[in-house]
Design a protein around this nucleic acid. Sequence first.
DNA 1: GGTGCTAGCAAGTACATACTTGCTTGCAGT
DNA 2: ACTGCAAGCAAGTATGTACTTGCTAGCACC
Lengths: 197, 197
Amino acid sequence: MDVREKILRAAVTVFAEVGFRGATTRRIAQEAGVNEITLFRHFGSKDKLLHEAISRQDLAPVIPALPEVPARPRAELLAWAREHYDHMVQMRSLMCACMAEMTEHPEIIPDSTPTRKSVIQLQDWLHKLRSGGFTTVTFDPEIVAPMFLGALFSDALGRVFTPSSYAKSQEKTLEGYVDFFLRGIGIEKHAGTLRAS
Amino acid sequence: MDVREKILRAAVTVFAEVGFRGATTRRIAQEAGVNEITLFRHFGSKDKLLHEAISRQDLAPVIPALPEVPARPRAELLAWAREHYDHMVQMRSLMCACMAEMTEHPEIIPDSTPTRKSVIQLQDWLHKLRSGGFTTVTFDPEIVAPMFLGALFSDALGRVFTPSSYAKSQEKTLEGYVDFFLRGIGIEKHAGTLRAS
DNA sequence: GGTGCTAGCAAGTACATACTTGCTTGCAGT
DNA sequence: ACTGCAAGCAAGTATGTACTTGCTAGCACC
């Protein structure tokens, strides 16, 4: 891996850990295993380095799409939710850092956030579910898609900070969310799997 | 308002805006309208000041409880959700700052987060709904309560960062969340209010 | 062997930050 | 009028930070 790449990765790592102010050029250089001056030779200034490091697609992961044609809604949505959840957990500190620095450094936030794409993906899939005859219930994908992803998001963030609020295991919670969601959009599954209290 | 109180409030404000490192003693003093030295005379060090400022109950708002005995589920939940939502929007930057600083300064986070209390509140209310005969549907309050609050939470946070992901207005979204949630726990309302896409 | 190029090293500049010290001012209580 | 306290002011210390400058070492290419 070349030096430039090493520096960029180190910058993202350090930024996620300690934010903009905490990400000193010294610390980034150390993390990258290069001399501090090399940062300046490559990127000119700390601002430019961090901007370049964060605004490239580090926040956008490779997330497998929902199938073009829904076949087994529960399995498909569950797998998709799991991927998203895992990714959010992994990106947690970077996302928190970005949110916290947002007002001071708006330019470092990538314009097209991955969440937006995921919302659209889910909305499309929901439309297909209906046109595919999986459900006849009335619901608004523009409401329920962000709602579902929002629940995943705050679970991924919150579980770390206030574990006491999350009684169930990750996996059981994910299944619970998916099942409750599917029921809401009119896709009932065989009885006995929606756990009672 | 006495000086001590002014300083504590200023500290929280500045911290929410610029985080721990950004909250310099100079800036806090300026925000509080006092001399920088006064901070040290009162609190000894920046660390102690910020710790005291944030760990007291500034994160815990006064949120009206759900009624002891549910009567009109939709109205009650909607009002409760609105209060929570507004409060989260108001507390957004402070929450983001706390989340971002969590790993570096774990001691500043209040032990009993208000979210936890809200989750319990909602769970209790859900139990009462069932025992009160409002629903006979099977669901797990330990799953759906955090799910609902999680959706509110990330909407309150996300709407600011990626407004494009949130097509509907705040109010319509809140109603949408509440109605979808109520349907999921088996409380249907008169037709025509669940908006279609 | 010479020529660039990349990166390291040593040292330094200008500024900001947390925190200290010594002294003064205003004010309340007696 | 005197005392004690809370706060301001001026100045200073030690450290950290972004960034610069001048020089050297290795390495590829001709």
